[in-house]
Design a protein around this nucleic acid. Structure first.
Length: 270
DNA sequence: ATGGTCGAAAGTCGA
């Protein structure tokens, strides 16, 4: 008989673009009932802080909640079973959009929750300012990342599927925003700036297809399976060494009134 | 085939 670690030595962090928390509190409850999550990072909450439905999280034991929301668009949140200490919030576009939250966990680890701009439909700066704003957001984030002084975990909707196997058809999506070469290169520079380890791909290596998002516009998302891996969990090398599992919860795309994104869960031995 | 579906909001716009 060999020794086993106590359950409380494991910590599971989930990241999920919920596409409006007020429209989908039932999904949060379903996730927290289905999986042993300790910390839940949400993106696209789409509500002001005062309108955030805290009760659904508190009822599930997530009494520690950090919010960076705004009316209508964007918005991020971190909800936790464990106490969190708020850390400075970044505004990489300097335009007030709520796209970042940071928290220090009880064990001292820093957690960053990010919602990268989608970038519009046309992959050209001149024709589509949103595309340039997306690249600029990532460039400023890269400067920040390069200067980080301590190990961290970075999760969120990065709105880029970097690998050929991160999309349902690499060639067909080369000129589709989220998978263009310039976006992949820009995300690669961000990753390299800190040596971030892509935990999704550490546990499901390419060329296995891996997706976290399926369009609402598909007649049958599961049958066509035209997905993209837009949601990520990254960690500094020292923290990545403590990761023991990653799961993308594909089934959540089929839940009632689903988000178009599914949760990605990472478990660490801390 | 330039569609198709969502949410927020009450116009369309962004995703």
């Amino acid at each position: 008989m060999h020794a086993m670690r106590a359950p409380d030595s494991h910590l599971t962090i989930a990241s999920w673009n919920i596409n409006s928390i007020r429209a989908r509190p039932h999904l949060v409850a379903e996730l927290l009932a289905a999986r042993a999550v300790d910390i839940l990072c949400l993106q696209e909450t789409k509500c002001a802080n005062g309108a955030f439905p805290r009760a659904v999280l508190e009822a599930a034991g997530f009494g520690h909640i950090l919010l960076n929301g705004q009316p209508m668009h964007h918005g991020v949140a971190i909800a936790s079973r464990l106490p969190l200490a708020a850390e400075p919030v970044m505004d990489w576009q300097a335009n007030g959009e709520a796209r970042h939250l940071a928290a220090r966990l009880p064990n001292g680890v820093l957690l960053h929750n990010v919602y990268v701009p989608a970038g519009g439909d046309i992959p050209d700066r001149a024709a589509n300012p949103k595309f340039g704003q997306k690249l600029d957001f990532l460039a400023r984030m890269t400067e920040w990342s390069a200067a980080l002084a301590e190990p961290a975990i970075l999760v969120g909707d990065l709105n880029i599927a970097p690998l050929p196997e991160d999309v349902w058809n690499h060639k067909a999506l080369l000129d589709v925003v989220s998978h263009t070469p310039v976006e992949v290169e820009t995300l690669g520079a961000l990753q390299a700036s800190h040596g971030w380890v892509d935990l999704g791909r550490r546990f499901v290596p390419a060329p296995e297809p891996l997706y976290t998002w399926w369009s609402y516009r598909a007649l049958d998302w599961a049958a066509s399976d035209r997905g993209r891996r837009l949601d990520h969990v990254w960690a500094s090398p020292a923290i990545a060494a403590q990761a023991c599992a990653v799961e993308t919860l594909r089934a959540a795309r089929g839940w009632q009134r689903p988000s178009d994104h599914v949760p990605i869960l990472a478990t660490f031995r801390f």
